[in-house]
Design a protein around this nucleic acid. Sequence first.
DNA 1: CTGAAAGCGCTTACAG
DNA 2: CTGAAAGCGCTTACAG
Lengths: 339, 339
Amino acid sequence: MTRPKTVVEVAKLANVSAATVSRALNNPESVRGELRQRVLHAAQALGYTSNPAAAALRKRRSRVIAIVVPSLEDETFSRMVNGLQSVLVGQGYASFVQIAGFDNTQVFETVKGLFDRGAEALAIVGRIGDRRLIEHLRLRMIPTVAVYSRLDDGFIPSIGIDNKKATAKLLDLLLSRGHKNIAMIAGTTRGNDRQQARVKAFREIMSGVGDTEPIVHEIERHYGLDDGAAAFCATRREHPEVTAVMCTSHMIALGVLSKCREQGVRVPEDLSVTGFDDFSFSGLLKPSLTTLSVPTREIGRLAAEALIGKLDHERPIQSLELVPELMIRDSVSRAPSKR
Amino acid sequence: MTRPKTVVEVAKLANVSAATVSRALNNPESVRGELRQRVLHAAQALGYTSNPAAAALRKRRSRVIAIVVPSLEDETFSRMVNGLQSVLVGQGYASFVQIAGFDNTQVFETVKGLFDRGAEALAIVGRIGDRRLIEHLRLRMIPTVAVYSRLDDGFIPSIGIDNKKATAKLLDLLLSRGHKNIAMIAGTTRGNDRQQARVKAFREIMSGVGDTEPIVHEIERHYGLDDGAAAFCATRREHPEVTAVMCTSHMIALGVLSKCREQGVRVPEDLSVTGFDDFSFSGLLKPSLTTLSVPTREIGRLAAEALIGKLDHERPIQSLELVPELMIRDSVSRAPSKR
DNA sequence: CTGAAAGCGCTTACAG
DNA sequence: CTGAAAGCGCTTACAG
């Protein structure tokens, strides 16, 4: 077990001071050509690598960013991480990527663990619902950006879409095709601004439209395919008049589609179905799913640029609103004229 | 901009030495009850958080692990990260997660960046094809485990499946259903042990079976849906006798399925199709896809335990072979008896 | 059980 | 352009 080499050892071999070694390595122009060569050779010969902890301690900079996502199973957030890293890597940043679940009210411990390990900035999906974390960020002035949703928040800037407008866009499509009895199947709204905004928008718009109260089925726990399917059965039992179902996630939508197939409900002839967040296979399903495509890779890229701008150049972080694209596919058709 | 508090400041407020603060925080039993309380209160009052760089420098431990995956778009690897983190978080480890592409021959710079930022161990998908990285790991004795594939490697332990056996399993299914003219559509094998092993296994087995040379179409660059579709067209043009297509990734399989649908090729009546790596939607496609399910979450969990065992208890890392499960679904049927 | 002191390895004013 | 020296904040033998 050979201990890693240090600047001092390199300095000795190159016959210079430790300071010069540091300079030659980090700021080559500041060292005369010949010396620089000697140092570089010595470092090479010894297989020197800088000790990041020592450098971070001295510089008070770690060049490490914390990325917190609800899940990575979801292409949506994977693409966002991809966008973030595509920028970060080129700028000499590494990133902790932490999966933290969908409930942002209890994320303090998890996120703090990343700061305790040196992260100096944070990109987190969605609104932070945990007071302790907000306080921590504020006190330590940690550069932070909330991604995916554009949120109105006095303190934390955000880069993403307006879930309310997005929901309206999707709903408008259904309304324009003559649907009136529309149900929403949503995931649990606890600590999840996306679900909250979508449900709220749906309720607001529908309360002026249908014959009944807006029909919303909120799945209690975190939702998978099966939960979507079960919620669909319940909704249909209670509201047989429904001709269109809006699902607030694609997992839910897939659950509904599979149940429809199983029960012989024809989509879109008998029932129109929409999802949320496009994914590679949306167009391959049968019927192919109508969804809203959120540009998460782009959001990630912009968030990374904003954080780096702040860290490296003291540039303030600007909130940005992006616009999702409506992907109209065969799972939506005109409402049946008579039931 | 208030500078973070230090042990010295906590010590002052609690009227003890810095050493005692450190002990009270890290090793509470070693400090008498009353003192401990005083320190904890003082730390609380000042909002003290330990400086991770300083601790890491002194302890020569960072409790940070590097996880390197080809992609996260792929549920396969997302699930693996999930498995890794499910163990790591509980043990006080954070993880860099780095997306590095599928070619493991040029990963040195990327991975080194993680070590340069404090990672002290590595979990990497697949065989490391980069000599410089192998040398770096060896010289610095960095605990490493290759995940996904069980590889024969003198130096780096691995946890995963045997891709050769896995391919044989899938191929046996097709052979047992009477298929003789089977084509494989593979992704580029460059720096990718999975693709290499699958192609090799296919060639070996098929060279004893069909009337012709084994039919393998290797997609040159990294493969998406479209590449799978294009490769399928080419294969079918050159080999109209083919009754079954083995795809070495699910993206390729989906590309093939979509092309079949477009061209009116009935699956599985006219053509059987298999994928690799099961994913949530495999059973929802029409036809639902026959694949092999690799337990990547479990692999991740085992890898995390192995690395922690090594780091915290000097326990050597054991290689492990896991067995993938064959998911037989409707995309495979008996070979047509006459063409 | 507690404290004084050394030192982890690096970078950066400060001199020259 | 280069070096000697200080110090980042923590932990841990070493004494007592």
